[in-house]
Simulated assay, not measured.
Amino acid sequence: MVVPPETSGARPPEAGGRWRSSVLAGPRGRRLCLELAARDDAVWSALFEAARSRDNGEVALRPTSDLAEAIERTQRSGWTTEELASALVTSVDSAVYWQPPRTEDDVAGLEGVRASLRATADEVERAAPSWWSSPRRHIQWTIDWQDAGGPAPPARPAADALRRWRAHVLADEGRARRERPTELAAPLSGEWDSIPRDVLATTGEMDDGVPAGLRLVEDFLGFESATAIPAIGDGRTYEIAREEDWTELCRRYPLDVTASRRHDWFRATGRDGRWLIPDWSRVASDWDAVHLTVECYLTSATRPIAVDAEWASVIAGWTPDVTFWLTDSASVGEGGRVDWRVDAGTAPYTWSRI
């Protein structure tokens, strides 16, 4: 087990820099670049063939080579903010942590395809909006999903929520140790995220003024209406701006989730080993909030992050630009609520004010 240092807390990582590592370092960044490249019809057709051959279990050497060549032939620049946003939305919606990566993610990670996306990645890093790398912004929104079964902003105090969360994680881990088979191929699933559940979650706005929490949703369930509620707060915010910021949390506040996450995260990442997540109930003693930048999401989410030689972790279940409030230093506002509705027939989904 990783032992945290005797001193508590850490200086907030320096945020706001531009692309500490390549956007191609992470599955989500590679998928974003592939989505941009596939706006060209020739690339889209080659991607369809490469994905089809892999879905059929074929050795996709020729289709993969054709895709890489199509990407190389059709390099372009000058992506608009909406094109970047649309590709980001698709990449986020495609994230999975309980099954093998989607075929397009698999294809984007192939060596030849990844190499062909280098020029696209360079353009993304140049053209990405500044807020993709920014610390938590002042204007924040939380989302109240109005469809049946949609989560609403939490009402209970953050300390109570985190105590319940920790008790649940420990109980689930204990059950998994007692009852789950050691065979990795066993057809079972369970807890797979690494977020602090049932605390206030907020995001800033995208370039078009839409709250990021409306459009940037992993595994979107098709909600058609929502209310964005302004959130007011301040406090000590831990910025997850690079992979090392996440590993620092895991080292200082380790929580062993090997038994409960092992099967799901093996399918998602291909790694078999011991797993940690941050113990958010302990993080809250030093920090009021934790914020994940879009840049770090693209370079680091959905893949194993080494904590040391034995342990690793996954940024799982997060969304880009999300801030989780670990104390009650933030609250939802009484006024300024905005109702939104999905624009019918849009893919990926766009939203309009009602």
Score class of each variant (00 low, 15 high):
Ser91Glu: 01
Ser91Met: 07
Asp93Ala: 15
Ala95Cys: 07
Ala95Asp: 04
Val96Thr: 09
Val96Trp: 09
Trp98Ser: 06
Trp98Lys: 01
Trp98Ile: 03
Pro100His: 07
Pro101Val: 11
Thr103Cys: 00
Thr103Ile: 06
Asp105Ile: 14
Val107His: 01
Ala108Leu: 03
Glu111Ser: 12
Glu111Met: 07
Gly112Glu: 12
Arg114Phe: 06
Ala115Leu: 12
Ala115Gly: 09
Ala115Trp: 01
Ser116Trp: 04
Leu117Ala: 02
Leu117Pro: 03
Asp122Ala: 14
Glu123Tyr: 05
Ala128Gly: 11
Ala128Cys: 12
Pro129Val: 08
Pro129Lys: 14
Pro129Leu: 09
Trp131Gln: 13
Trp132Gln: 01
Ser133Leu: 12
Ser134Phe: 05
Pro135His: 03
Gln140Lys: 15
Gln146Lys: 09
Gln146Gly: 00
Gln146Asp: 14
Asp147Cys: 09
Asp147Met: 10
Asp147Val: 12
Gly150Asp: 07
Ala152Ile: 05
Ala152Glu: 15
Ala152His: 15
Pro153Trp: 10
Pro153His: 08
Pro154Thr: 09
Ala155Ile: 14
Ala158Ile: 01
Asp160Phe: 12
Asp160Cys: 13
Asp160Gly: 10
Leu162Gly: 04
Arg163Cys: 12
Asp172Cys: 03
Arg178Ile: 14
Pro181Thr: 10
Pro181Arg: 10
Pro181His: 03
Thr182His: 13
Ala185Arg: 07
Ala186Gly: 01
Ala186Thr: 15
Ala186Ile: 04
Ala186Asn: 06
Gly190Ser: 09
Gly190Asp: 05
Asp198Arg: 12
Val199Thr: 08
Leu200Phe: 03
Ala201Tyr: 04
Thr202Val: 06
Thr202Cys: 09
Thr203Met: 00
Gly204Asn: 10
Glu205Ala: 15
Glu205Ser: 12
Asp207Phe: 09
Pro211Lys: 01
Gly213Met: 00
Gly213Leu: 06
Asp219His: 08
